[in-house]
Design a protein around this nucleic acid. Structure first.
Ligand SMILES: [Zn+2]
Length: 218
DNA sequence: CGTTTTTGACCAGCGC
DNA sequence: GCGCTGGTCAAAAACG
């Protein structure tokens, strides 16, 4: 994978944190525009008070065992078997909803799979706007459901609503207007285009989080 | 009820 | 060809 940059999200500001060779000043991360690359956000939730849907993906060792046992089956049977197993566990369906932080776009979920190779669940989303082909995928490990990676693919043909939505004069999403440049070779060619607004207010569980941003340049 | 999510089916690509 | 995998579709279910 390409270059990476780590940011700390606290309160209403997004600060750069120790990019290897960069200025130590707290430069606001950029969130904007002219996106043509895909990139990956890794959310490490430091705290999520209350019942956040992510935690509902936790599994007991028995469940994992049942999953592994089923992994040799054909078709999409690994998922099937797991769900069957969990059915006997008497759990509420609504508590199993995956919740992702708002990012300024509206998405439609169109699939979910358990990816055998990497042992993770992956959800597929497509931008709701007609004519826009942007997509994103979210994946998480069964054992670490609070650690979610969101990969954004493609470019939006429209703006994010995050620019306009405000609460008492304060943008719901942080929107510092600068740009991130990769620290590898690719940066000479282009800056990392971020078409996402990092959510702050809109996700109470993101009050403190580490966000890793990976450029997928080659 | 209209809208969104879930989830098995379907499909394309790949290794054999 | 066959079987497996990851990505997508779409019908049914769930949601509000
Ligand atoms: Zn879009």
């Amino acid at each position: 994978m390409g270059c990476s940059l780590r940011a700390v999200v606290t309160g209403k500001e997004i600060m750069k944190e120790t990019p290897p060779n960069a200025d130590k000043s707290t430069t606001p991360l950029h969130t904007a525009l002219s996106l043509s690359l895909s990139f990956l956000l890794s959310f490490s939730f430091l705290s999520f008070p209350g019942r956040w849907a992510g935690e509902s993906f936790e599994r007991t060792s028995e469940e994992i065992a049942a999953m592994n046992e089923a992994s040799h089956l054909t078709r999409d049977a690994s998922m099937e078997a797991f769900e069957e197993f969990r059915e006997g566990q008497e759990t509420e369906r609504s508590s199993y909803r995956l919740v992702l932080p708002a990012d300024g776009y509206e998405w439609k979920k169109y699939g979910q799979k358990f990816i055998k190779n990497i042992g993770k669940f992956r959800s597929y989303f497509k931008c709701q706007r007609t004519g826009c082909g942007a997509k994103k995928k979210a994946e998480w490990t069964p054992t670490e459901p609070s650690d979610i990676k969101v990969k954004y693919d493609g470019k939006h043909t429209h703006d994010s609503w995050a620019y306009s939505v405000q609460s008492e004069g304060i943008p719901l999403l942080a929107q510092p207007p600068t740009s991130i440049t990769c620290s590898h070779r690719c940066l000479e060619i282009k800056t990392l285009p971020l078409g996402i607004m990092i959510p702050i207010e809109s996700c109470p569980f993101l009050s403190a989080a580490i966000v890793d941003i990976f450029c997928t340049c080659t």
